[in-house]
């Protein structure tokens, strides 16, 4: 099988419930389709503190967890203007077949103020997008 034929699943990950929900679903999908997983952890990098950007410790745990799955995995971290655009860039780069994201509950006003990474990815992606919510 050539490199192109392998199903590629991009997952927008952050070290919280939403990221974990998306990641576990992405791993599930990758097993089903015997594909590979590309994990994206992105930040705008414009605040002093961003809990959704993994630190070394969390990254090490992620790599260890992923190694256990036995899948072909690629972890990418990036910093730029918009988190959604960064995920889309990676998806285009690896010609993804599926993008998995974690969806958070947000009120209409909250979305107006804060914008929505999920919406940006849903509207901008060329491939299928799977949005999951963490279990309560």
């Amino acid at each position: 099988m050539s490199e192109q034929a392998v199903t590629t699943i991009v997952v927008g990950w952050s070290p919280d419930d939403f990221g974990e929900a998306a990641l576990s679903r992405a791993v599930e999908e990758a097993r089903l389709r015997s594909g590979r997983v590309v994990v994206v952890n992105a930040t705008r990098g414009d605040a002093l503190v961003d809990d959704r950007y993994a630190d070394e410790e969390q990254l090490a745990r992620l790599t260890a967890d992923l190694a256990d799955t036995g899948l072909e995995v690629d972890v990418r971290r990036s910093m730029g203007g918009d988190v959604g655009d960064q995920v889309l860039d990676v998806a285009a780069d690896v010609s993804a077949d599926l993008v998995v994201i974690g969806l958070r509950r947000r009120s209409p006003v909250g979305k107006l103020l804060m914008g929505s990474v999920a919406q940006r990815i849903l509207l901008g992606a060329d491939c299928a997008v799977l949005a999951v919510k963490p279990p309560h």
Binding site: T43, R44, G45, D46, A47, L48, V49, D50, D51, Y53, D55, M79, G80
Partner: peptide, 9 residues
């Protein structure tokens, strides 16, 4: 220097 690697509090 707008974008810098964020830290964890």
């Amino acid at each position: 220097h707008l974008r810098r690697s964020p830290l964890h509090v």
